[in-house]
Design a protein around this nucleic acid. Structure first.
Length: 214
DNA sequence: CGTGTTTGACCTGCGC
DNA sequence: GCGCAGGTCAAACACG
């Protein structure tokens, strides 16, 4: 892992198109409440969506400030919309359980499941108008749960990043009031580069390095 | 066989 | 204290 690699921030005009299927529209980030449990977070998020749905389909020029360096090195793409909910630590919410390997020593008392009392990881959400529930963000995700949500005809799906040292999770839920809108909530920050983006960018960066010698 | 999905059970926090 | 709702686990299963 070399998140310290010096990757120059590519100018937006040189950015490769993200590999979103044609059905995707531009996403709209949603500011999450700064201090709340995950429960109220979810409900307030839905409330916002139901009552005050911001207009989607932002033109590309109005994309929110995306921190491409952070994105490529394992950070979040939306620093201005990231809401740190508590002190930045290793990132596990209270009562949350990691994989078998890292909690067997001193966390035996932790039980599985349960709602997180305090979310200590940065969370950010955005809406996507899409026919597909899962948008290809370049990372690999493993689904670990699905739950029916009250007052919603559609279940909420829970995903975890499959990178072995990465504990980023995301929730995906389709709005019942507007079934064309998918709300994706990310929790945590990737500690590894986005493979797909790096694949796309590597030739570009090499070319830039080559050209910069002249 | 490795990887990812499905799904019922289990656990916890919160509101009443 | 109890019930509900949300979040997670893990065995079983599917698929390439």
């Amino acid at each position: 892992m070399d998140g310290n690699e010096k990757i120059p921030p590519p100018p937006p005009s040189l950015l490769p198109p993200l590999s979103f299927p044609p059905s995707y529209n531009i996403f709209t980030p949603i500011s999450l409440p700064s201090s709340s449990s995950s429960t109220s977070l979810s409900s307030s998020l839905l409330q916002q969506n139901n009552n005050n749905l911001p207009p989607l389909q932002l033109p590309p020029t109005l994309l929110p400030d995306i921190d491409w360096v952070s994105l490529l090195t394992g950070g979040t793409a939306f620093p201005n919309h990231r809401i740190p909910l508590s002190s930045p630590d290793s990132g596990l919410a209270t009562g949350e359980r990691r994989g078998v390997g890292d909690d067997k020593d001193n966390n035996k008392l932790r039980k599985r499941g349960g709602r997180s009392k305090k979310v200590t990881r940065p969370r950010f959400a955005f809406q996507t108008r899409s026919a597909d529930d899962i948008l290809d963000d370049g990372y690999r995700w493993r689904k670990y749960g699905q739950k029916a949500v009250k007052n919603s005809a559609y279940p909420r799906s829970y995903y975890r990043c499959t990178y072995h040292t990465c504990n980023v999770k995301k929730q995906v839920q389709r709005l019942s009031k507007d079934t064309s809108i998918v709300v994706t909530t990310y929790e945590g920050i990737h500690n590894h580069p986005c493979e797909k983006l790096m694949e796309t960018l590597t030739p570009l960066l090499k070319q830039m390095q080559f050209l910069s010698r002249f």
